[in-house]
């Protein structure tokens, strides 16, 4: 580790009405690593991820206690500008969510909103991030076509390019390969592995093998509680908590 922690979660609790979904979670996320959050479905993984870029605020009946510190700034402080927080993070959702516009416009959407207007700058940025996402060669001749004509795997890489185009520091992935075929999944995983040189990556998954393949740092959530976390190799080799062990061996899922 290089000692930097771009995101630091401190005593975070999240309630949906009376139901406590996250229980006092504290976690430092290391820079330029892939942090994988594992755990059975319905244990709060997605909630934890969404709390990082404040997408939970919009959900009805959600209460949040605790802090998430991003670059030394508490994102839940009243004065924090939410659009600025979100711009620092790119989100990949479970199913690719392409915007109802052309391939080009999907990538240009974010930069344009944030004030990039000049045609040449936009063109350059779109091309660059489509290349980073490994999609450029497949779409360069049909940038004006609606994004919905792409295959699901291509759509997910388009979403990746779109997220990167606002030049975030962090990439959040919410089971980003769950809707994809094995080949597309592999493609996305490989992109993420390349991206960690420049970005901090946080990925939620319930696929253990995927976690083994990509994780540098591992966090195990169980029933809203952060049971164990540490360098992936250590946790996989020698889990300290019996529940982690049970999950890793497939006794609970």
């Amino acid at each position: 580790m290089n000692g930097q922690t771009p995101i630091s979660i401190r005593n975070l609790s999240v309630f949906y009405g009376d139901l406590q979904v996250l229980k006092d979670v504290s976690l430092d996320i290391p820079a330029n690593r892939i942090t994988v959050i594992i755990g059975p479905s319905g244990c709060g993984k997605t909630t934890l991820l969404k709390s990082l870029n404040r997408l939970l605020d919009d959900t009805e009946g959600v209460r949040i206690r605790g802090q998430v510190v991003l670059d030394g700034e508490d994102i839940y402080a009243p004065r924090t500008e939410v659009t600025r927080i979100r711009k620092k993070m790119g989100l990949l959702s479970q199913r690719p969510q392409v915007l109802p516009m052309s391939i080009y416009e999907n990538v240009a959407y974010g930069p344009r909103i944030h004030g990039l207007r000049a045609r040449r700058d936009l063109d350059r940025r779109v091309e660059h991030y489509l290349q980073v996402a490994g999609l450029w060669d497949e779409v360069k001749d049909r940038l004006r076509e609606p994004a919905s004509v792409l295959s699901v795997g291509q759509q997910q890489r388009l979403c990746l390019a779109r997220g990167l185009a606002v030049e975030p520091e962090i990439i959040l992935g919410d089971e980003p390969t769950s809707a994809l075929d094995p080949q597309s999944s592999q493609n996305v995983e490989r992109r993420l592995a390349e991206l960690k040189r420049d970005y901090t990556v946080v990925v939620v998954t319930h696929i253990l093998r995927q976690a083994r393949r990509v994780a540098d740092y591992l966090a195990f959530l169980y029933l809203g509680e952060l049971v164990e976390h540490g360098p992936a190799a250590d946790v996989f080799a020698a889990p300290r908590d019996p529940r982690t062990r049970a999950y890793l061996t497939g006794e609970i899922s």
Binding site: E81, T83, R84, I113, H114, G115
Partner: peptide, 14 residues
């Protein structure tokens, strides 16, 4: 944050 971005953000929020 730099000036133009803040200005722009202000306009978007308005």
């Amino acid at each position: 944050m730099n000036g133009p971005a803040d200005l722009r953000l202000g306009r978007r929020k308005r």
